[in-house]
Design a protein around this nucleic acid. Sequence first.
DNA 1: TCTCTCACTTC
DNA 2: TGAAGTGAGAG
Length: 744
Amino acid sequence: MSLSMRDPVIPGTSMAYHPFLPHRAPDFAMSAVLGHQPPFFPALTLPPNGAAALSLPGALAKPIMDQLVGAAETGIPFSSLGPQAHLRPLKTMEPEEEVEDDPKVHLEAKELWDQFHKRGTEMVITKSGRRMFPPFKVRCSGLDKKAKYILLMDIIAADDCRYKFHNSRWMVAGKADPEMPKRMYIHPDSPATGEQWMSKVVTFHKLKLTNNISDKHGFTLAFPSDHATWQGNYSFGTQTILNSMHKYQPRFHIVRANDILKLPYSTFRTYLFPETEFIAVTAYQNDKITQLKIDNNPFAKGFRDTGNGRREKRKQLTLQSMRVFDERHKKENGTSDESSSEQAAFNCFAQSSSPAVSTVGTSNLKDLCPSEAESDAEAESKEEHGPEACDAAKISTTTSEEPCRDNSSPAAKAHLFAAEPGGRPRDSGRLDKASPDSRHSPATISSSTRGLGAEERRSPGREGAVTAKAEEARALPGKEAFAPLTVQTDAAAAHLGQGPLPGLGFAPGLAGQQFFNGHPLFLHPGQFAMGGAFSSMAAGMGPLLATVSGASTGVSGLDSTAMASAAAAQGLSGASAATLPFHLQQHVLASQGLAMSPFGSLFPYPYTYMAAAAAASSAAASNSVHRHPFLNLNTMRPRLRYSPYSIPVPVPDSSGLLTTLPSMAAAAGPLDGKAATLAASPASAAVDSGSELNSRSSTLSSSSVSMSPKLCAEKEAATSELQSIQRLVSGLEAKPDRSRSASP
DNA sequence: TCTCTCACTTC
DNA sequence: TGAAGTGAGAG
């Protein structure tokens, strides 16, 4: 039965309140996500390809909405609203015809990400939502030019730890807080042909990160079917909710589908870029990250040391006032305390100083501190800075590179994900039967070693340049073979519990649960107005029950559907479960003994649909290890935990990402050997840097020469300036947690 | 730690 | 011109 306007459904078709109906979007102001197995749905299937257009008059939709909203607000268990509908497997909704493609994904602005990773990643999250920086941009290749693809991104917990920034480094501070409801962001251009995707850099800069648990920028779609294909709770949104001081890993997905509706049973290819891992913070902890962002984010230009931003003015003021103080001090104490080191420093300063006082402490200071400053400056200069980046290098010197903080563990090496054919998925007959995809080829984990040329450091936000440079890069032989983890899930592939899809393993008790295997999705608001995926979704979402409540977009959700249903399954009253916010329900569920993935995404989404049945059966049949794929995985390769796919992947030891034990990784992950050593004794590190400064000053002083008399007047001024600088530096050193090592 | 405001930026 | 994206800094 195909859905159309005239279908006599009670009291209306599911499409009546489908949130993707563009003309309906503003009306979707429900305060809760409505439940599972909605009683309104007759047994229906979607037309092939979900292509039937549905234009539902508001007059018809409104009463339905009211009813749903009313039910949600009063907390009436949805099951009491009517008999549960039995939804047939949507066999007519099958993925696109198999096409030959071999997608490869290249992370753009990789060098920026590398720096970011090296310095110890931090990503600011705010209540209102903050963009990612560096921006997550990729370039795709190997797509079928004609086929349509949907590109998505989500962010999952990297581990189950909470972190703190202590003694200039990130360390584990305990167990992770309960995970926030996850969403997935669908690139607003989706779906588009492979040709279109490959012709440009795909950027996800509009995705925002927030710590606001009541964020209204998302809504949930439940796929209320007892059929594995449709199980799942799909949350869309433009903001993802993260826990502060927790580590996260962005993921990128390519789905060959011409319709969002097909996501649940389409093949997901998932790519992880280890260097994009980050710790969410509400305020910057690590000055190096701050500086990196200031140097590279156009919006933060005002804080750069160069230019006329507030930062410089403030610095000038500071220096000025300090100079006044010095002069006053000298008048009181005479000038006898001029040290030779000051002279030397002055010499050095005088040689390279630019006239502006405000620039003191950038390149000039770098000259004074060759070892640390240079090492860092060298490292940075090797990264092919543009003009701004050069500036950045100077500034980072100014802000005092700290050996402890520098994660020089070659993160760049970490992105070679060589998939081992080792873990072949276990077969699941049930899946084969249940999934429409079962005819497809088995799941493959392809590790693409794509050699793109070294990317030049780019100024973010300049897509054109980025694209052009990427083009250049593509023409070059690969400096670094990049092989993102590629997991192709497929129905027949469902050999779960080992091999490439252990992330699909279902925790005990969840295996048969609905809504626990779906994964939320971010949806770009623009897609409400889009044709393409969502227009056809309007026709194809019959069996979906969607609830949205709105803030800015008029659409929002509490993501409670899944939990409501699951909680109900756990013996909670429908009412209470339905009224709990998603995250609370998660707690409830956890307390109910429902095993949940500690990593938030209970189960990695769409492929779950394909593997759900198999997972359920295999989980039931398998031993405890198999039922705890994460644990199993963790034993072997702890930091793969954020990957939904526990692939036995050989990873370079230097990666620091996949080979480190969690605690060690947390403690020493972002540090290189030297840093780790220093980190073991942070105090000594601070002392070291200070003493280094002193000894360097002495060295300079001993080699200093007497000054020309005509310089005497300037010398005095410069000396006082130097004192100011040194005071500044020692002031910085004195800062306990956010200390910067002294790079004089 | 977090939130808010501010001055600054880009678009 | 104004909306939106920045980090700093105060509280």
